[in-house]
Simulated assay, not measured.
Amino acid sequence: MGYEDMTDAQILEKLLNADEAPIPQRTVFIKRLGIPVVLQGISEKQLAALRNKYTYTIRGKRGGPDTKEFDSENFALALIAACAAKPNFKDEALLNKYKASGPEEVLKNIFLPGELDQLSNIVYELCGFDEGVEEIEEIKN
Rank of each mutant, 00 (worst) to 15 (best):
M1D: 07
G2C: 01
D5G: 03
D5S: 12
T7M: 09
T7Q: 11
A9H: 02
I11E: 07
I11N: 09
L12A: 08
K14H: 04
N17E: 10
N17S: 14
E20N: 08
I23L: 01
I23C: 02
I23M: 04
I23G: 00
V28E: 10
F29E: 12
K31Y: 11
L33I: 08
L33P: 02
L33M: 13
I35N: 09
P36H: 10
V37E: 09
V38Y: 08
L39M: 13
Q40A: 12
I42M: 15
I42N: 10
E44K: 10
E44H: 10
Q46Y: 01
L47S: 05
A49E: 15
N52Q: 14
N52D: 15
K53M: 09
Y54F: 15
I58Y: 13
R62S: 08
R62A: 12
G63Q: 05
G64I: 00
P65H: 14
K68S: 08
K68W: 07
F70R: 15
D71M: 09
S72L: 02
S72A: 14
E73C: 07
N74L: 05
F75Q: 12
F75A: 11
A76V: 01
L77P: 11
A78E: 12
L79G: 13
L79S: 09
A81Q: 10
A81T: 04
A81Y: 04
C83T: 05
A84H: 03
A84F: 01
A85R: 15
P87Y: 07
N88C: 01
F89D: 05
D91Q: 08
D91H: 05
D91E: 11
D91N: 08
E92S: 06
E92N: 05
E92F: 03
L94I: 00
L94S: 06
Y98C: 14
Y98M: 15
Y98V: 14
S101N: 13
S101G: 15
G102Y: 04
E104N: 12
E105F: 01
V106F: 04
L107H: 02
F111H: 05
P113S: 04
G114A: 00
E115M: 09
E115P: 03
D117L: 08
D117C: 00
L119Q: 07
S120M: 02
N121D: 15
N121S: 15
I122L: 13
V123C: 15
V123A: 07
Y124W: 13
C127L: 08
G128N: 11
G128Q: 11
F129T: 04
F129C: 00
E131C: 09
E131M: 06
V133S: 05
E134P: 01
I136S: 09
I136R: 10
E137M: 14
E137W: 02
E138C: 03
N141Q: 15
N141C: 02
